[in-house]
Nucleic acid binder design. Structure first.
Lengths: 218, 218, 218, 218
DNA sequence: TATGAATGAGAGTTCATTCAT
DNA sequence: AATGAATGAACTCTCATTCAT
């Protein structure tokens, strides 16, 4: 899944820029197939370039993964934007979860980054880009009495994290299981007299949690 | 968290048994901290023994992980049994999820085993041990109109998998976030006029999914 | 004794080619000194490169040994060719045995390959390359009544295997003992009224024997 | 002042002596099957005792191998004695070579010790025990004009070493190949007008050669 | 700039040998 | 005396990263 090219600060020669994007696309494919543990050599071979070339573009494997994840975040943000544009908030919310799940499902590494938390900063970025549209969506949903009012945009980070954990449960030839659990969570998001315990997480808290996960990994 | 000692066929000398359990406990700690990718050397050092000693007790790293997971499964089964014994099905269900989450939270590797599925057989075992009590619990819950009737014991594998993904979100000094999402899922488990899509997964399907995950990892 | 360079399919950079040959030469020396059990680390150190470099050139220890043996086989084939070119068959035969012995003597591992049979395929290759010239040599020798007529080219595999076993018997400052036993065997190769028992071994039989030896070793 | 100086170094308890012999027998079997590289653990298990027990009887693996080889040497000496007792020197010589070969063939490790020279001292011992009977045999053979007179007892060390190298060439269902090469060597041992180069090796030389081989191994 | 090649620091595993019961 | 257990030192092989063309 070649993600849209990102804006690069420095000007690169045309072929260099092409190599750079090739590497990111290759990373997407290989990470998707083998997870974040895939070797850089493999990715480079997949991109049709040499490993050393990868190191000219990215100081280390970590950074290539980051770049790849940044592009994933772009895609996630686009999904949130489109969902918020839906006139029916409930339909928008449903679409948001389902399309997010599709994105996650297409990338094993994205599961890794959400589950094993590769880098806290990326997480913050993801929140930053999706919060505003989600908040708009939720506001309208509450207005119409479609969505419970003790849920906030930041709650969707853990929610997607949870859904990401079961993306791999697809078995060819059978209905895709995660939809079932999206529906379960959607049922939980309906208005209810019983309030959820504690408050929605603050962005800071989510960042700290993601960072602490990242720290564990080294 | 030293798990309950497992029944060992052969009698071990006192010191050997101690070392064996030390290794498993060390494995729990180290796996908890760094996931199933942790090195055996690390675990052995943590246990205060030589790597070769680990190899005397377990033919390879895989087997040590298996032993550790087996003990986790015992604990999980105990949780399911106690939950089923609760006279109030809803309270039992709540306790089941919360205590399961606590167990998972204390072991990063348990997340791995649920998320990344180290070994399909272990997964099958886990299902096997928890299905019967859960099914009893659900049956009573449905009778009393407390629990929606299109959910089955096997649904709790993905549900716990999901919850496992966010166990790491705890931040010292703040209320434990996962409880919030347990509550969200519990809300979704209340009876509802809208049925969930597709059927509860069959044990075979869950096993196949777990096995295919395990295959990816190698 | 650096053996003649072998034809390599892919073009290697100058320094890589140098390292590659250095590794093979180092393998020759180290195998010669310690047999095929020598460690790759040792060989690499001898070649002045890192072990990992050895692994860049050869997928495993086995393959490095194979490459080294291939070069030995080239040398052995050259010896057979030159011997067959000698106008005097007896002189040719003598030269063949003596020069073969010199080759073997310079390489402990060559003894290994003949004695302990590292790889049945290599053995087959060796036979294949030396049989034709030897057969020509023997044919002329029989014509002139110089060589007994119940001996065949394939007999020289076991004969060299035998001689290989005593190559190590040289002691500095004393006449080289193996020559004495070459002479003994040459005496046995003179025409004789008493026929040797059984037939010369077929190539298939030699290969099977070599393969069964290889199997034992693992 | 006890007159009966025991031939046995130390008295062993009956069961200890039994274990000791069991270990040597197990060593023979296991060495025969897997060569001198077999693990002590394997041998001990084969003997039905613990490794540590092996270390009570033998200071290290080397010494157990030595003991095993010593028993082989006894057998070899017996063969030489019986051969010398044959009234027909040529028949005696033939029997000596064939039975020696059988002995070697039954023990992979004996090939190792002769080929790869585990220990120079053992070699000396072997010579020592077989020289006298062989010399008597040869003397009579020369008298009758049956055996060439420039061959000596010490020549049979390299000769057996050579034959040992091809003991493995047997293939089930086919005539045993080594007999063919014994016949070849016997043909070379017939009287001949052409003298062999250099002199028969002195015992010292053979010992030095064997010792230098042993040194290589470490 | 891009490449082929090289490397150091492990990871998993094995084995001769020693220790503690 | 004999055993179960423990160990340190190897050995094979891998990979992120750097160097030399």
């Amino acid at each position: 899944m070649p993600l849209s090219a990102a804006a690069e600060p420095r000007r690169l020669r045309a072929d260099a820029a092409r190599n750079r994007q090739r590497l990111i696309d290759a990373a997407a494919e290989v990470f998707a197939a083998r997870g974040l543990d895939a070797t850089l050599d493999d990715i480079a071979r997949h991109a049709g370039v040499n490993v050393a070339t990868a190191y000219r573009h990215f100081t280390n494997k970590h950074e290539l993964a980051d770049e790849f994840l940044r592009q994933c975040i772009e895609a996630a943000a686009a999904i949130a934007d489109e969902a918020a544009a839906d006139p029916n908030p409930w339909a928008g919310l449903t679409a948001f979860l389902e399309r997010s799940l599709d994105l996650i499902a297409s990338n094993r590494a994205l599961v890794d980054v959400l589950t094993r938390a590769h880098d806290g900063d990326q997480f913050a970025e993801l929140l930053d880009r999706t919060s505003a549209p989600l908040e708009r969506l939720l506001a309208r949903g509450r207005q119409y009495g479609m969505i419970r009012d003790d849920i906030a945009a930041t709650d969707f980070a853990p929610i997607l994290e949870m859904l990401g954990a079961i993306t791999g449960t697809g078995v060819p030839g059978l209905p895709y299981l995660p939809h079932r659990y999206i529906a379960l969570i959607l049922a939980g998001l309906r208005p209810s007299p019983q309030r959820l315990p504690s408050e929605p997480p603050t962005p800071e808290r989510l960042q700290r949690a993601a960072a602490s996960k990242a720290a564990r990994r080294g």
